[in-house]
Design a protein around this nucleic acid. Structure first.
Lengths: 213, 213, 213, 213
DNA sequence: CATGAATGAGGCTTCATTCAT
DNA sequence: AATGAATGAAGCCTCATTCAT
């Protein structure tokens, strides 16, 4: 019983070890240029071992996203359930949640958006694709529910909450990817946080229904 | 002289022919899975010929972006120079310009954002990287100038115009990439236009300085 | 002593368990595509355990043949010793013995001939090779002795009995392999038995010395 | 026009060059242990080049058989058409044809029978499998037609000609594979020819219908 | 004895790039 | 300038085998 459990934990630890290594390597070299051997070396394992834990390179890559999406989802659902708070507060929580998820693991977040905007997506196993799709949909759904309260209160403009959530999500990924790409081009300063804060505020203000005269 | 010129034109024509083919192939297969032979076949040329016009695959890929960036820049500068019009009109023009650029060649726009969010960027020749960087900066600059007028008129909040332009650009790329990736996952409907229109409107409204009480 | 013995029996039981599993897997996937893990799973053992009973994959493969060769040998020697019977009867017994051996375990017989006609043979340990060689020679010898009686009786043509046994053996393996390969190509009907019976009869009739005029 | 033709010839020459190398390597190491790099080296080409002429290893392997089957078919059809000759002569021609095909390229014949009796067959492309199947069927058909004449003349026993052809084919492959495998085990003497000649004679004699008393 | 996770050599294959024609 | 056959480096992945538990 205890043995079964310990093994399970061991296995999970190894997965993490690999994921951590993969994260570093993918971030440093990008998906295309990172090799399985690079990752194996970084994880201090042999190439073959990676395949005991992940079916192939694509799936390893996608696995990075799964975890962060799960974390994102938890945070968003938590915010969505804060029935008590006023809208203002809830939007603040939402912004904070998104930034926290970014801070939690910037490299993985970036990887995730790369995944989203790449052809890797097309080559995932149906299972994994379904899982990602599912998590994404749920996360978008949570965001939509938060925004919806603002609409119901008559504070936000009356648009389809999912459409608004899509835009917020696009803004999030857009800011992260663009600021990231500026780093490649330009410098090593990181403007993600302040830029997203400003963007989020503008977005929130833009959502407010014009006061009836 | 005339001969020189004609040759130049011929050469440019070939480049375009290749770029058009590359565009199709990259869009269909993604950068990673598209091969130079695919592109050569699509262009009805031999693989070797591609290398007479482009130094390597990365540069060919990046070249797609150059053109669209040039077009974008022209459109933005045109809007920026519309001194006459009122802010409202200018923002409309800006939105229209961005959407036009997207409509002009959606595939290439998508490619460009993929490029931005990929590791290819890191492997470009310094020359090409500089050119892209330059065009991007100019485009961002144009956008910033347009937004700046709103700030000077006291209509828009007083934030650094470049920061605002960054956000608008992030929103643009974010919406396009996200809607595009939804297509991979889900269906073949295209929500880029309406989503960006809504996003742009929210953004614009969010820019407006709150009326002093 | 009793303990020693029981252990020995246990060990043999395990070997058989593995051999049975290997037989199934080799037959289903062929030697090249069957993995040691496949076999271990089929035997409900771990891969490592296989190596406690067989030095390596080749030897495990070859071991399948050993058993059937032993069985074949016993049957053939039994027929060879039937001094009493008339030639006709003895040839019938011979045919029956061969078909029985085939029926006893078609999969293993097929494996054996595959082994014979493959490159695995070349990679066996000298010991195992010697054992197979030995059994084969003995089996061929038994067949030769049976045929020899016919020659001595003046009924069969006077050729080297070993050469005739070679031919009979070749016919046996040829029919089995060819009918088997037809199954891959065409259908799932099994013509081994009737074809070999006919072949054997033709062969036997062909052996008869032409009557002196 | 001439250019087209020369290219075609060049291409065919290269294919042959590769086939010859493959033949040597497969024969020496067997299919399983032969690597594409081995073959490339033997052909004094780079590994990549092999794939310009053969889709993969299996197909290269199978291609060896195609040629010899074609040659076999031609020879058999030629014999089948010898309407003039007496049965005796025709059977002699048949035997000679089979032996000639063996002599034409023993290594390839052996390869072909290995292919037949291996799992490679199962992994061929449908096209190639169809081609092999087709050639085999035709060859068997030709043999059957030859034997059929003997039946019609009342000289041979009245069995289904295809069944008889199957047996002859099995005998042919059986003798070759068995003699070949004896070489691995024992020596380097080659008994294929004499053994098959004897086997064929026995077979032919066995075919003769018993004289009505 | 048994396990099964880990190994790592090595196979097949792809494809960007070159270069003789 | 154009070709396209050839290259060969390098990637992904498999799997027989080992060894610490």
């Amino acid at each position: 019983m205890g043995i079964q459990e310990r093994k399970e934990r061991e296995r999970e630890r190894r997965r993490q070890q690999i994921i951590i290594a993969a994260k570093r390597v993918f971030s440093e070299k990008g998906f295309g240029r990172a090799t399985m051997e690079d990752i194996a070396k970084e994880a201090e394992l042999s190439p073959g071992t990676l395949y005991l834990y992940f079916k192939n390179k694509d799936e390893l890559y996608a696995s990075l996203s799964i975890r962060i999406l799960q974390y994102l989802l938890i945070r968003l659902e938590h915010v969505a359930k804060e029935a008590s708070a006023c809208l203002e507060t809830r939007m603040e929580s939402l912004k904070k949640a998104m930034l926290d998820v970014y801070d939690f693991d910037p490299l993985v977040i970036i990887n995730m958006f790369h995944l989203q905007s790449s052809d890797t997506l097309r080559n995932l196993s149906p299972d994994l694709l379904t899982e990602i799709k599912d998590l994404s949909r749920k996360a978008l759904g949570s965001m939509a529910r938060i925004l919806e309260t603002g609409i119901r209160e008559g504070v936000f403009i009356d648009r389809h909450p999912i459409a608004l959530a899509d835009i917020l999500w696009a803004l999030f990924s857009g800011v992260i990817l663009w600021e990231e790409s500026k780093k490649v081009i330009d410098a090593d300063k990181d403007f993600v946080r302040p830029t997203f804060e400003l963007a989020f505020d503008i977005f929130t203000r833009g959502l407010r229904a014009p006061k009836p005269a």
